[in-house]
Computed example of a mutant assay.
Amino acid sequence: MVRIKGTIGDWPVDLTVELDDPEWARLGKQLQREVPDAPPPAPKVSQDEAVWLSAQALLRDGGPVSGPQLLAQLDALAGGNGAGKRLLVRLRHCAQVKVENGGDAPVYSWVNSAAV
């Protein structure tokens, strides 16, 4: 069952569509035939891989950041201090990450992969 609520112009719309399982299957097949250029479904990514990709994006998009600041962000991203520390170590060993001495704390920055 699908319920559609909203308005068309000033007219309120409250529509319920009910189909049996075979009808839903037939509708799905018909839609696939009508949209042949639809992109293939994205490959499934594990939760760990998704967090790793997010950690890389955090550093890549955020610019240079001190180790303690980065660790706090990774803790929040990963949902805990232990997981955040593992991400920090993984970033430290990543070829696209540059770690420099920043005085009191190391400074992490993203290096353009084309320049590596």
Rank of each mutant, 00 (worst) to 15 (best):
D14P: 03
T16A: 14
T16V: 15
T16R: 15
V17Q: 00
V17F: 08
E18T: 15
L19F: 07
L19Y: 06
L19D: 05
D20E: 14
D20V: 07
D20G: 05
D21E: 13
D21K: 04
E23C: 11
E23R: 15
W24K: 12
W24T: 10
A25C: 07
A25H: 11
L27W: 04
L27V: 09
G28D: 03
G28T: 02
G28Q: 02
G28L: 06
K29V: 01
K29R: 15
K29I: 01
L31Q: 07
L31R: 09
R33E: 13
E34I: 04
E34F: 13
V35R: 07
P36Q: 04
P36V: 06
P36R: 04
D37H: 07
D37N: 09
P40L: 15
P41I: 02
P41H: 01
A42T: 11
A42F: 08
A42R: 14
P43E: 11
K44A: 14
K44I: 14
V45C: 06
S46C: 03
S46G: 08
S46I: 04
Q47H: 10
D48M: 00
A50W: 04
A50C: 05
V51D: 11
V51M: 10
W52G: 05
W52M: 08
L53F: 01
S54Q: 12
S54T: 07
A55K: 02
A55D: 02
A55S: 06
